[in-house]
Design a binder for these strands. Structure first.
Lengths: 270, 270
DNA sequence: CCGATGGTTCCATTATTCAGAACTCAATTT
DNA sequence: AAATTGAGTTCTGAATAATGGAACCATCGG
């Protein structure tokens, strides 16, 4: 049964295999609309979805009826509010996040920089929490975001926890995009992973965004049923390389605290 | 299966009935799991859902496969991470929120208190944004949350924008829970709504939580395709009744700015 | 070893969904 | 003004996926 679900099957949201019947088809539509830059008209969706008009019409109708999509005044489709409601519940009760929360706060206090908690999903990292300093900044800006795995501290930390076969599977499934001069390539990434496994820390040296650095450490369950990471992020002028080294240990400690919290917190299992 | 000869029973005229086929059934399950206080076992869900074992098994399988649910190591079901991803996209691109954002920031600067943006969905208010002062506080704590409509500033403000028939429909569909001594009842609520329509401002005088007050104003589109509100919230010791009055106008102004932004921002419609 | 409890698989039956065409409605073009 | 196009909606029998019931595996506790 489901303890170890074996292998990761569908890495990306490309529409090819549907093992999920009707739901799968609807989720493809939902993805199309949520990934769009702006609300889409019926015909726009029709062109991408490649379904008969009548069928698409009913499907969109159902999604709308359920609040997963919404129809704007001009007839275009946008993601619905029901998603926010569902997600906020999902987030609020997430055990991993709840357990991690106090440790994240402590780390934020210690470093004064922004602390992130993320978890691996398919070939992306999804941010589960973020604790900032005192700036009245955009919240939610990161939480829930799916980010590339090869150029974020949390992503690389998470990767380092995986066995080689899953690592390879993920690396080969991702298309590497060059965000900055320092962004890694598939080859350099493997080297990095080795370093991370040795030292216990992943670094992001302006690989995703110029001027932003971070130091991270992996957090994972014994059975690898989930894999994630914690990180401290900040502007390059504050996070000098010495600083990064200085915080490497506290970050690892935080990761360890979270992991031991998980072993207790999730209760007796198996 | 003969075609649907004569429909014997008409739709219920007061409540909208859901005709969403398979999706509807799955969403019910998703709701069950996301509303639970903790992850549920198969049997727990079985008891609530009232479906045959085999059916439920497949449905949960599909939801899990799509990442809407996830099975923990011990086999229990919890909301999945896919929801966060979907919601963050939904949130990030929400036109209403994008248009409102600068105005919310301005209001926060002016008052120094927490500013909320919410929108009516069914008989609840869903918070779309929140701008806080400088405390490093829980983010996301409100965003996406569905809150009762009769004891929050934003909720009452939103209600005041509705025509009486829709107002009645909502009021009669909600069960009023008494949170504090000041929580309104269906009868007092109607009086309040009249006041709000007159003055343009809704107040929450510790009706939801003792020690918390707020002043709000309605924000809505001409055609009422959506209805929401903005509010300034804070602790009672800072938000004296004089203060509330003082901020009533700025809050209304903010609401108006957002509405005029919407008229332009959403472009030509209809 | 037995008998619970909790979860999974199979398969004929049945209800939903599908596809494609026909239809409405408005805005443009001629 | 009539004709044409574009965008969206509503019908159908036919195809497909969902259903429900029972039989089938695990574990666990005695």
């Amino acid at each position: 049964m489901g303890a170890t679900d074996g292998d990761i099957m569908d890495k990306n949201e490309s529409a090819d295999k549907r093992e999920t019947g009707t739901l799968g088809k609807l989720m493809v539509l939902l993805d199309i609309v949520t990934h769009a830059d702006s609300p889409m008209r019926f015909t726009d969706i029709l062109a991408v979805a490649g379904q008969p008009r009548g069928t698409l019409h009913r499907q969109l109708g159902h999604l709308t009826e359920e609040g997963l999509l919404e129809v704007l005044a001009d007839g275009r489709y946008a993601p619905g509010l029901r998603l926010l409601d569902l997600a906020s519940r999902s987030w609020a009760r997430n055990e991993f996040r709840l357990i991690a929360e106090p440790h994240l706060n402590a780390l934020q206090q210690l470093t004064g920089e922004t602390v992130h908690l993320g978890v691996l999903r398919g070939a992306s990292v999804i941010y589960l929490d973020k604790v900032e300093g005192s700036q009245p900044v955009r919240m939610y800006s990161q939480i829930g975001n799916a980010s590339p795995i090869y150029c974020t501290g949390v992503g690389k930390a998470a990767l380092s926890a995986l066995p080689d076969d899953r690592l390879d599977a993920i690396i080969s499934s991702v298309s590497f995009q060059r965000f900055t001069d320092n962004t890694l390539t598939p080859e350099t990434l493997r080297g990095e992973i080795a370093d991370i496994r040795r030292s216990g820390n992943a670094f992001d040296r302006e690989e995703h965004e110029v001027g932003i650095r971070c130091v991270a450490a992996p957090v994972y369950s014994e059975d690898l049923s989930f894999v994630g990471g914690v990180s401290v992020t900040g502007p390059a002028y504050r996070l000098t390389f010495e600083r990064l080294e200085e915080w490497a240990l506290p970050v690892r400690r935080t990761a360890e605290s979270i992991m031991s919290g998980m072993r207790i917190g999730l209760g007796p299992r198996r």
